[in-house]
Nucleic acid binder design. Structure first.
Lengths: 223, 223
DNA sequence: TAGATTGTTAATCGATTAACAATC
DNA sequence: TAGATTGTTAATCGATTAACAATC
């Protein structure tokens, strides 16, 4: 039989981590990599706070959402902390990705070190242009979009990355809804919601940050 | 001589708009375009809230940071509201942009309708590869990076977009710090801060949203 | 042990939502 | 006028910061 303490501990294990904290995790990931690259093995919340330009309090609060990764009087072991952050973010889950749309954007992403850094393996690309089919970008071969469903199955793809023209977003999403993929990284600019199909979607609006820049500039000009 | 009421009003005109609101503005911009495209001329905060999946209260609060754009009993005139949002975001300021790095990413962006939609004019590109110099992408001619400073001056560039390899980010930033540009849209992944030089910077970390997607997927897998 | 720094609680701050009077 | 919907104030909620006891 459980006593009250057990129940409290159990609840704490399952408590939802706030979106604000989750959105900061990739930033910790980036800075920890940098600290490792610098050869540091130990870091305190005070040091990290100075580097990242946030409060030490916030860092300790954030990290404690997932467990006590530090040690009083010492700080945080950089490698251990990095390992933990990686675990939380699914780096090392060996996620397999496929890119739909082998245009400039898709090609740029696949050629970049972005995926490798995050432990994501790009196993295939898809396009409709006959001139592209059969070619390779980095390690990923380009297949005809006609073969989408069977190839996603064949390669056991977890994540689909959408870099095609926005007008094909919805029909592609409908096809993807029926597949076994776990998530979509959607760069088309057309918002998708496939939560009903158990597929996580991240809708990226890269232009939004260009607009906030324009806002800042316009504001500075006014002053 | 000013009485107290004047002072209050004046302060209200200048009160800082919260970052949370500013980050939502581009989203209003996108949805209003969509509503215009649909041919609607009038929209209430209730309708808009349903479309955007936020509360009507938030919409009214957000818009009121910038002035009373609506009318009681009627709602908002879509075209007027869109015009106002555009004004706030500097669309129509006729900002002139140049892209440094004519690789796949830079090319993808310049070919996309992103800039035109936001009233930003891409007037030039820069690269170090001799094979690219002199070519054109959309309306933008590619110049040698050696000519950076004089060309930015010549074209009266407001915004520089960085799509070059991260290892050249810092040296490029140092050169840009001495120019007359107003802002940098930085897609290199290396954070910049040129506030001391009066240059607004928007550092984009596109990979961060891929990581939050991986977090969600890893979370779903655990459940 | 003494010093340092975490983990955690409590206080503050800011952002969101609810409610309603103003008004078109 | 009556109905609708804003603009705005007040209440709630969540996130950040400060403080300090726990502990390495």
């Amino acid at each position: 039989m459980k006593d009250e303490k057990d129940i409290i501990i159990e609840n704490e294990m399952h408590h939802e981590v706030s979106p604000a904290v989750i959105k900061r995790l990739p930033r910790y990931f980036r800075y920890l990599r940098e600290i490792i690259r610098m050869g540091k093995t130990r870091v305190s919340s005070a040091e990290l706070s100075k580097m990242m330009n946030v409060t030490a309090s916030q860092i300790r609060q954030d990290l404690n959402c997932f467990g006590g990764f530090g040690q009083q009087g010492y700080g945080y072991n950089v490698n251990y902390l990095y390992t933990k952050i990686c675990e939380i973010l699914g780096v090392g889950c060996g996620f397999r990705a496929a890119v739909i749309g082998a245009g400039n954007l898709g090609t740029a992403l696949v050629k970049s070190p972005m995926f490798e850094k995050r432990g994501v393996d790009v196993v295939a690309m898809f396009d409709v242009a006959p001139s592209l089919i059969g070619k390779k970008v980095a390690n990923a071969k380009i297949y005809s979009a006609d073969e989408l469903e069977e190839r996603l199955e064949e390669f056991a793809v977890d994540i689909v990355i959408l870099t095609l023209d926005k007008e094909y977003t919805l029909e592609t999403a409908q096809r993807l809804a029926k597949t076994n993929i776990s998530g979509i990284w959607n760069l088309t600019g057309i918002d998708l919601d496939l939560s009903e199909h158990g597929i996580a979607v991240e809708n990226v609006h890269i232009g939004d940050s260009l607009m906030t820049l324009c806002y800042e500039i316009a504001l500075n000009d006014k002053k």
